[in-house]
Design a protein around this nucleic acid. Structure first.
Lengths: 131, 131
DNA sequence: AACCTTGTTGCCAACTGGTCGCAACAGGAA
DNA sequence: TTCCTGTTGCGACCAGTTGGCAACAAGGTT
């Protein structure tokens, strides 16, 4: 919390209650959360405001979002460099260290000059149980 | 076209004009297409119908769709096993052979028992020009 | 060829995830 | 305390997609 306030001050915006609480929620969460989930947990903060704060925080590099194939985006603290892997059948999500994708990143880099943003996209497939 | 008809017959549904034409479009397309694009090119086929046909064809395994970060899904003939890589800055999309992801697929398989569906998700990042 | 069953279509309303405009509100520097 | 400006809630709006429903038509049956 104390460093969340420092962060907010560093970003430059105003130190509002909504921002502090949203940031704390996301910081303490072990799993990524959807905007709707954050809105629900914050209780009295409007959904549009949640999206606005998420946008600012992401622009400031504090958080990142990723797309889970069907359904809403999820947001997570940006220091957690994980890639979500979602089962298309049962919805189970596991997270793997993004370093697992390093060979792919390097291959793309040298082949096409493309620099991948690993983690912006969830990988999808079937989990062990559902196969 | 002749084998498109055979395909449709094999799938089991009725052989309608909309299905034949949509399938031909997608079969002959070099790039993946959005539902809106298909609807536009088909002219007199309703958008809801396009989605319904796409759903059936996908269930039958004839086509696959993938999600491009923001914006609509794209559909492609399923024999083209490519992964889209989208530049977040300029939107340029390149497609790479999915075999480039084989090491990742194998790693996930042995670590977590997860079987990835490569191609269902687009990879995102920055292209050489935009970096 | 007429007929009937059932998949298919068009039309349109609804739904989800997300954005926007605007007036009221509230940090926080002066 | 005052004032400026970032922030908020509210409600309309938007894109992409799905669902209900009645009319329609593919294609097997008689």
């Amino acid at each position: 919390m104390e460093d969340a306030e420092g962060l907010l001050r560093a970003i430059g915006g105003r130190l509002t209650d909504a921002k502090k609480r949203l940031l704390a929620l996301l910081h303490d969460a072990q799993d990524p959360m959807t905007a709707e989930e954050l809105h629900r947990r914050l209780g009295d903060v409007d959904e549009a405001t949640v999206y606005r704060i998420l946008g600012q925080m992401e622009e400031a590099g504090v958080i990142v979002h990723s797309h889970h194939a069907h359904g809403p985006s999820v947001y997570r603290w940006s220091t957690r460099s994980l890639v979500a892997v979602v089962c298309e059948s049962c919805g189970t999500t596991i997270e793997v260290e993004s370093s697992l994708l390093d060979p792919l990143v390097e291959a793309l880099e040298s082949r096409s000059g493309f620099h991948l943003h690993v983690g912006h996209f969830a990988l999808t497939g079937l989990c062990g149980e559902c196969r």
